[in-house]
Write a protein that binds this DNA or RNA. Structure first.
Lengths: 190, 190
DNA sequence: TTTACTTCTTAACTTAAGTCAATGAGAATG
DNA sequence: CATTCTCATTGACTTAAGTTAAGAAGTAAA
């Protein structure tokens, strides 16, 4: 399989020097996951973290027998499961929605490469800070808007998700029932 | 002023070696901020990040003339304003609620110390990852619960906040009106 | 101590989401 | 072509939060 352009996707977030680009390209491991593949289940410990090169995934909890989606991930996004970081059993599931191509890493090779290439750890720290800002903005945006505004926001900023993902999953993610999303769409259609 | 125990607070999150402890204690700058002090305003660029040693702060947006609180910070929590990381004008305000003692850093001295002590950058990366997990958990917990559950959760996990912070600020943070919080408390009293 | 102010509570009414049930539209299957 | 299944929509009714206004309780100020 041809390697998708990991450097181009990373460069959207942070400036990558040629030296780093070579290093990353050399060390990156890539694999493809079929659609509807669950890569992490509740109770499991994650052994890998991911960077999405192509495709779409979701994170969801099983609450009272129902899925609760809290995040969609698409191209250029990093998935570092909590259980990868803290080595505790996961509280949530992660599954692909479409066929998804990812770059992945594990703790051993991560630490190994940081030891030999401290500049990469520095890059990772900075990238982590950038994603932290994004995550915080997302949180703030969420808690300060109602479902209708959140839907409008999604339509505006992530029109791809509206296309790719069935409406009942969108509603689930927005924190409402499919019936309510229907009504919101009807209200907005005017 | 006597230095509060920064090492003890950091150790709640991550193991700190004696070597790192000495380094952190030596380099940490500490100051006290009076109550109701706004340390960052919308439109400003943050020049400092903070680690709370004692006290309480809040982050809030000014939306349609009304405050919208999205986060309270207390002892042991890190405040890295988005505008500190990306050097863009801040979209939100940060203020103290009580008198607050903080350890603070600026980009120059941060980069300087990372250059001479790469182990500290490694520690910072790990700490950042730990806070990322906490932030993600908070987000998930938020979006998957209703106001009543969020209030119960706060009472259970952050009883200190219920004591320290006026009810209208708690309601604001919970995403509801003070009247609704009153009703929730009444419902629960039964 | 009287007054003003702040915070919380209560009540009546409105609005939007939840729930349950029925229907419609399209795609997949026999 | 008819049948089945999935997903989205609609309607009727319930529940909880928003809104507006009024009052209660406590604290600070005059």
């Amino acid at each position: 399989m041809e390697k998708p352009d990991i450097i181009a996707l990373l460069s959207k977030h942070i400036r990558i020097s040629d030296e780093m680009a070579t290093l990353i390209t050399e060390y990156s491991q890539i694999k493809s996951l079929p659609r509807e593949t669950t890569i992490l289940r509740e109770g499991q410990r994650a052994t890998e973290c991911f960077f999405i090169l192509q495709g779409c995934m979701k994170k969801y909890y099983l609450q009272d027998g129902e899925d609760k989606i809290t995040k969609f991930y698409t191209e250029g996004e990093v998935i570092t499961p909590a259980s990868y970081t803290n080595q505790e059993p996961s509280k949530y599931y992660i599954s692909t929605i479409e066929e998804t191509i990812v770059s992945f890493g594990d703790p051993n090779s991560e630490n190994e490469i940081y030891k030999t290439h401290p500049k990469l750890e520095s890059l990772t720290r900075k990238l982590g800070e950038i994603f932290m800002v994004k995550t915080n903005n997302e949180f703030d945006n969420w808690v300060s808007h109602n479902p209708e505004d959140r839907y409008l926001n999604l339509v505006k900023n992530r029109p791809d998700l509206i296309q790719r993902i069935p409406q009942y999953d969108i509603a689930n993610y927005l924190g409402i029932r499919p019936e309510s999303l229907s009504r919101i769409r009807k209200r907005l259609a005017k």
